[in-house]
Design a protein around this nucleic acid. Structure first.
Lengths: 241, 241
DNA sequence: AAAACTTTAAGTAAAAAATACTATAAGTTA
DNA sequence: TAACTTATAGTATTTTTTACTTAAAGTTTT
């Protein structure tokens, strides 16, 4: 089934096969977080087109790979990052968006904790770097547009799904959580109220540990209760910051 | 630029041109509303593959059309419906989803008021019909999956964007609006409280008209204030039912 | 080892919003 | 004119949000 059948002729008398000339690509907007700043991961291309330009990790999809797999493969090949939560957010199909032909690209986004992932440029990525989302370089193709829509999607989704936890270490303090949300949503919350709200959701498991190596009273550590979230979700529960 | 250049060879030694064998299609989930029920529009196919099956209005995209235009054209060709608000929601790219070759489809959804649109089957649509979303027939391709995700998207978006108004006539009563939201969200609201909430948003313009032809006290008519919505939106206002 | 300092963490009071309910007004039909 | 239906206004109660205060726990400085 991988080669289009010649059987069908469309109504405009264009042979069916003439429709099968698209390229499909995936592009990944990878959000990272550290020291109160949200960043995205860009690669410096070492291949035409747009050689030497900064771009999103992305590539053409082969005929025998589905979209989700392709997105994961691309990320692994170009950055070494493997096996992370990744979600589709929008597809871009302007006619002139790729100089080599007609390519529709599917945008994916993901969130990773900076410390845990040490991306290494590989394949045709010459170098790789985290950029502050408010201070991006010129980007290849229409990647600026893709990034912008990715940021918009993240800001919206982070409010009603607990995706933010992907950006923190497994064990975290409530202040770290608050700092993260303040960075993501670019706003400030009252500290006592924030912790009251988040704890009342009953989605955090308090640990019998405190943070170490701080020059003040160490805060209690918590971890996210994924099992409970899965249960609550089924009952129509909405996570809401 | 419409034919892929032979210049580039991918790293796996697959000629660049071998990636350009995808078909792209668009499929439209058109929501309609009347008599307290939410429906979607399906066509009965009069062309292979899946001839005689019910399916979403959709078609392959040609090389010289962008996605949004293609979605609008498809809808116009198959149903006669033209010039309506339409929004992309997800892309589907499983390898075996189309028997004629590798086709990635981009899902669009729209909301229309039943009365205003009298869809007529044309092109290769044999017939056309509204189906209750809770009582759908067997569908061609993976259209069941597309519909399900479309419904899920609608239910989510309708809560924080005033898309619901697309489903009502320009002039409507508050009870009609409430009935619509109750049908969309499959729930019940307290009448006085619903009207208080919606009116306090200051997004409705009260008209000096009342509904006619009813055997009881006629309700006041309102219309949606789009200009004001655009203004509020810029200030970070979130519509929230 | 006490004082100063910083941050966590618990608590409380006021304001706002959501919810539940009651009453009245405006029209239609018998 | 009375009975009826639905729109619309109003009120009281509960819950949630927001703003602010205070105490506790640890570190650093003197």
């Amino acid at each position: 089934m991988n080669s289009p059948s010649n059987f069908f002729i469309s109504e405009n008398n264009v042979p069916f096969i003439d429709y099968f000339k698209f390229g499909i690509s995936v592009d990944c907007v990878i959000f990272g977080y550290s020291k109160g700043r949200v960043r995205i991961l860009l690669i410096e291309r070492d291949a035409d087109p747009f050689k030497n330009s900064w771009a999103l990790p992305g590539d053409l999809v082969s005929l025998n790979s589905n979209l989700d797999d392709a997105a994961n493969d691309v990320l692994k090949n170009l950055t070494g990052i493997d096996n992370i939560f990744m979600e589709q957010f929008y597809s871009f199909g302007e006619m002139d968006r790729h100089p080599a032909g007609r390519v529709v690209t599917v945008g994916y986004y993901s969130l990773v904790e900076n410390k845990n992932y040490n991306p290494v440029a590989s394949s045709w990525a010459k170098s790789i770097q985290w950029f502050d989302i408010y201070n991006l370089p010129e980007l290849a193709f229409d990647h600026k547009k893709i990034v912008m829509r990715g940021i918009q999607t993240l800001k919206r989704r982070v409010r009603y799904r607990p995706v933010g936890f992907e950006l923190l270490p497994v064990k975290f303090t409530l202040t770290e959580l608050q700092d993260l949300y303040e960075a993501l949503l670019d706003s400030k919350f009252d500290k006592p109220n924030f912790r009251k709200k988040i704890l009342s959701m009953d989605l955090l498991i308090p640990l019998n540990e405190t943070q170490g190596n701080v020059s003040h009273r160490p805060a209690k550590l918590y971890k996210f209760d994924e099992k409970r979230y899965e249960l609550l979700k089924d009952d129509g529960f909405v996570f809401d910051i």
